[in-house]
Computed example of a mutant assay.
Amino acid sequence: MDYVIKSIIPIVIGLIVIYGMKNGVKVYECFVEGAKDGIGICVKIFPYLLAMLIAVGVFTDSRLLDAFINLVRPVVKIIGLPPEVVPLVMVKPLSGSGALGVFTDILKRYGADSYIGLVASIVMGSTETIFYTLTVYYGAVKIKNIRHTLWAAIFADLTAIIMAVTLVRLMF
């Protein structure tokens, strides 16, 4: 069974190539054109990605994150969110890799099976890198007015955080 599971992607790719050849499509040329388009997209996305990475670095290195955590500590206690998880909640909308680093630190300090570790695990899996995603994808297609996307994404993340606390309390 393991062999079949590992073979699914190569089989699907092979079927696509065979289907294309059967219908007279120049498969290799189409692949090369797609790769050229992909590189063009990477070039368009790079400035937005670089700006976001610099902003995350400045926010973290300037200790603004620590100040913000101290400011919101009373509020997060009301919903039951451990203050130790606040850095993850703050970094996750900005940077997936930064959030992974914070998440790893939380698990090393408090353990994966602790209340803090369980809440952090659910938050990590159920929230999105909102600002990174908006910056990269809207920037790539040159959309400047994101309208309600940001507020909907923030509301979805807040819902995920509240549900993480609720689920851990109910199930563990």
Rank of each mutant, 00 (worst) to 15 (best):
38 G>C: 08
124 M>S: 02
115 Y>E: 12
163 M>C: 09
35 A>T: 09
58 V>K: 02
95 S>Q: 02
33 E>L: 12
127 T>S: 04
35 A>M: 15
68 F>V: 07
74 P>Y: 08
88 L>G: 03
59 F>T: 02
102 V>N: 04
63 R>M: 11
57 G>W: 04
75 V>K: 02
170 L>D: 00
129 T>Q: 05
88 L>K: 04
147 R>V: 11
156 A>P: 03
103 F>G: 03
141 V>D: 01
50 L>F: 15
167 L>E: 02
110 Y>P: 00
125 G>C: 11
101 G>A: 13
86 V>P: 02
151 W>F: 10
74 P>R: 07
128 E>H: 10
97 S>V: 05
52 M>N: 08
132 Y>P: 00
76 V>Y: 05
35 A>E: 14
91 V>C: 02
75 V>E: 06
126 S>H: 08
18 I>R: 06
140 A>N: 04
48 Y>N: 11
26 K>R: 12
132 Y>W: 15
119 V>C: 08
141 V>K: 07
34 G>I: 04
117 G>S: 08
59 F>I: 07
31 F>W: 07
31 F>G: 15
107 L>F: 02
140 A>H: 01
35 A>V: 13
47 P>V: 05
52 M>F: 06
3 Y>T: 10
56 V>G: 07
60 T>R: 09
97 S>A: 06
89 V>D: 00
105 D>W: 06
6 K>P: 00
73 R>M: 07
41 I>A: 09
89 V>G: 03
8 I>A: 10
77 K>V: 08
167 L>P: 00
55 A>L: 13
64 L>K: 03
84 E>L: 06
118 L>K: 15
3 Y>R: 15
89 V>Q: 05
113 D>L: 11
140 A>G: 03
46 F>C: 04
163 M>R: 12
33 E>K: 13
127 T>Y: 01
89 V>N: 07
165 V>I: 12
